[in-house]
Simulated scan of single mutants.
Amino acid sequence: MKYDSLQQIGLDKREIKIYRALLRLGPASIRDVATEAGVNRGSTYETLKQLATKGVVNYLPRGKRRVFQAEEPEQLLQLGERRQQALSQAMEQLRTEVIPELKQSQGKFSPGNVRFYEGDDGVELVLRDILDSTASDPERGYSVISTKTLREHLYRPFPNFTRQREARGIRVRVLAVGEGGDEAEYAERKWLPAPDTSDASYIAIYPPKVAMITLAEKNYPVVVIIDSAAIASTQQILFNTLWELL
């Protein structure tokens, strides 16, 4: 039986082992639980206290000693619901308070604003970042300059990128360098003439970020992301100007 879901609601492997041992035993002493679970007595006692705090174990007196017993497994659902509620509250606080406060204290620009990636994993990271960033932006759009020589390699690690973009209603304007390029929903395209042998390049402008992809030897992708509102704004002005001229 898989217990990933129990770990997701906040139980570690030792807690799961001891909870299951207690379910098998019924009310039991620390020594009996430790023996059944195969965990030393000291760790068993600390774990039982943690489980009691989480509401899935309780204890009761038996003579001069204390014995522990497991709550019904349905109690795990309540533990998961409490954890989900706490996570929702934390996410809302992150969104409305913590992140705005941290961004105010953030320096305008630093070496950390430039990130380098390699390979298909780096390309996929950029494409997912474009979707996530533009989906939360009121404009829900971004701009791209892409050469023909790079297009065949771009979606290799993320073949359903376009379908996901369309499903989210994200718009894109593409300046295609060289012929080709498929039509798609929420996409506008204009072409710039270029020879088929032009260098591979892909530039995505999604303020406050600009992502650039090129190919090294043997078509190995190299990726740079610049997180700078100033650079993104300048690139957007250049893009818009060229777009209007075509």
Rank of each mutant, 00 (worst) to 15 (best):
A167E: 13
R173K: 14
P193I: 09
Y202K: 03
K148G: 04
G169M: 08
I145D: 05
I203L: 15
S143E: 08
L150N: 02
T134Q: 10
P159G: 09
E185M: 02
A194R: 09
P195E: 13
A204P: 11
W191L: 11
E185W: 00
L150F: 13
L154E: 06
P138A: 03
L192C: 08
A167F: 01
E179D: 14
Y155H: 11
R156V: 09
L175A: 09
A184I: 01
T197Y: 09
K190G: 05
G181Y: 12
A135I: 01
R151L: 05
Q164F: 03
G169R: 08
F158R: 02
R156A: 08
E188C: 07
G141T: 10
R171F: 14
K148L: 02
Y142R: 03
V172K: 13
K190W: 06
I170F: 02
N160R: 09
T197K: 08
V172D: 07
T134G: 03
E139W: 00
Q164E: 15
R168N: 09
I145A: 13
E152G: 02
E152I: 04
V177S: 12
G141E: 15
A135L: 10
A204C: 12
L192G: 06
Q164W: 05
W191Q: 09
Y142M: 07
E188V: 03
I170M: 04
P193L: 13
W191D: 04
S198M: 10
D182F: 04
D137R: 02
T162Y: 04
P138N: 04
R171P: 00
R163P: 00
R189L: 15
P193H: 14
L154N: 01
A176I: 02
E188M: 11
D182S: 12
F158T: 01
V177I: 15
G180C: 06
I203P: 01
A187L: 14
I205E: 04
P193W: 12
S198Q: 06
R151Q: 07
P138Y: 02
S198L: 07
D196I: 06
E139M: 00
E183P: 05
L150G: 03
H153D: 01
S146F: 00
Y186W: 05
V177R: 15
I170T: 01
G141K: 08
R151V: 03
A200C: 08
R189D: 08
S136L: 09
D196E: 14
A167V: 01
Y186H: 13
D137K: 01
I170A: 02
R173H: 11
Q164S: 06
G141M: 10
A200P: 15
V174A: 03
K190A: 14
S198D: 06
L150H: 07
Y142L: 11
E166F: 05
K190N: 07
T197Q: 07
R173Y: 07
S198W: 05
A167Q: 06
